[in-house]
């Protein structure tokens, strides 16, 4: 198990432009959307860190931008990292799919697409998972459904 500093040093050497916010519960890496996939690939393949287990992948809508959040763990060393990428385009948000690296990502990404409308490039089967095709994206903060959801 590597300490936070060691991990920070290794990861900052992998891709340029990675930010490491301070004061978080877990180690976080924020990368531009372009280097998101390449960082994940390196995180997985680097034998010193070997983040081979995608715990969960989700998204958060911060109103001005959306963030894709991946929680990665190494089953060998048991350290964790939170990989984040911010998407500023709310109309057509798109980011690379991690399905090629983690098979689990296929359905996590379908769920994100279903609930947030974020498109994933190179995804093998990007269809809605729970909801109908003409339903909105309910976990976006600007989603309104007057019939089913009572506003407080």
């Amino acid at each position: 198990m590597l300490s936070r500093e060691e991990l920070t040093n290794i990861i900052s050497g992998l891709v340029p432009g990675a930010e490491f916010p301070e004061g978080k519960q877990l180690l976080e890496v924020i990368v531009p959307a372009e280097s998101y996939f390449s960082l994940a690939e390196k995180l997985k393949s680097d034998p010193k860190i070997a983040f081979n287990y995608l715990i969960t992948q989700t998204a958060v809508d911060f109103q001005t931008y959306m963030t894709v959040v991946c929680h990665l763990e190494s089953t060998e060393f048991r350290h964790m990292v939170v990989l984040k990428a911010n998407l500023t385009d709310r109309e057509n948000p798109a980011i690379d799919s991690l399905t090629a690296l983690y098979p689990a990502a296929e359905y996590f990404e379908r769920e994100i697409f279903d609930l947030f409308g974020i498109r994933f490039n190179n995804h093998p089967n990007l269809k809605r998972l729970f909801l109908e095709d003409d339903y909105g994206y309910p976990l976006r903060k600007d989603f309104r459904d007057e019939i089913n959801i009572i506003e407080r």
Binding site: G23, Q25, L26, I55, T58, V60, D61, V69
Partner: peptide, 30 residues
């Protein structure tokens, strides 16, 4: 802030990820 916690349920790993903006309800809960 953001909080993350895992427990072992009878079927595997349940992880809770909370993004809070300081209100009494979570901003996002996964």
């Amino acid at each position: 802030g953001e909080y993350f916690r895992r427990v072992e349920t009878a079927r595997g790993e349940l992880a809770v990820y909370v993004v809070s903006d300081g209100n009494k309800s979570p901003y996002r809960m996964k």
